[in-house]
Design a protein around this nucleic acid. Sequence first.
DNA 1: CATTGGACCTGACCGC
DNA 2: TGCGGTCAGGTCCAAT
Length: 272
Amino acid sequence: MPELPEVETIRRELAAHVSGRTIRRAQVLDARLVQGRAVDEFEQRLSGARVQTADRRGKYLLLRLDACVLVLHLMMSGRVHLRPAADVQPHTRLVLTLDRDPAVHLVDVRRFGRAWAADAADLRDILGRLGPEPLGGGFDWRTLQASFRNRRVAVKSALLDQRAVAGVGNIYADEALFTARIHPTTPAGQLSQAQLQALADGVTAALTSGIANFGTSFSTFETTQGTAGENQTRLHVFRRTGQPCPRCGAPIRRMVVGQRGTHFCGECQREA
DNA sequence: CATTGGACCTGACCGC
DNA sequence: TGCGGTCAGGTCCAAT
């Protein structure tokens, strides 16, 4: 599920509901979730801590506590739910019981999600290699140019590299390339300045739309309230194989790039 | 260094 | 109904 717009949607809901609350108890229900320290130490670090704010860096969710930062990465299937502490549903991996309901539940079917109770040094290790925040002002065609220089990989793969720009995943990479009219397998280092500018704009536009529509959900809910996002109705190409391109009407095609399903318009996005 | 392929997990869905 | 294969919004690591 979660790329930058989905994580940002969750962050906003968490900020509204848990800022200023105290974590009475942290229960890890799947030891594989916890990174960097023992499970009991992780739980102890969180228990009793007050939540200051909810932040985000790329696809990482950051709950800033008094003495450390709870870092969550939801990977493919992780979700954050706000519901009563006693209402623990299947596949729940972490429950943060606060000083009043609702509690924070991390639910993750595939168990790829990760969590850290991070100090400042841990935070540098975890976040240190991320590229610029795409909506944070430090991102433009020049940062893409610097990252893509001399790279022969498909631009789709280069966009998914979090060192280039933080937070873009499979949905928004396809959408950004469509908006920029760039074929997904174009070697990253071969893009013209005009193409890099269009791509930077496409990334920004796709992510901004995703946030405005509360994220993209397929078949299953993802906001903390259990409601679906709305962005899936606004997508131009992603998972629209065979349906008409909104720009020219040609059928959207699907191919595999870097082992990821990739959707594009063969007419609007010509091979170089 | 850059790039590729596999691994990590579970569940849904499709065709036979 | 059961079985096998494919697919899924991400990242890391080993091999080349």
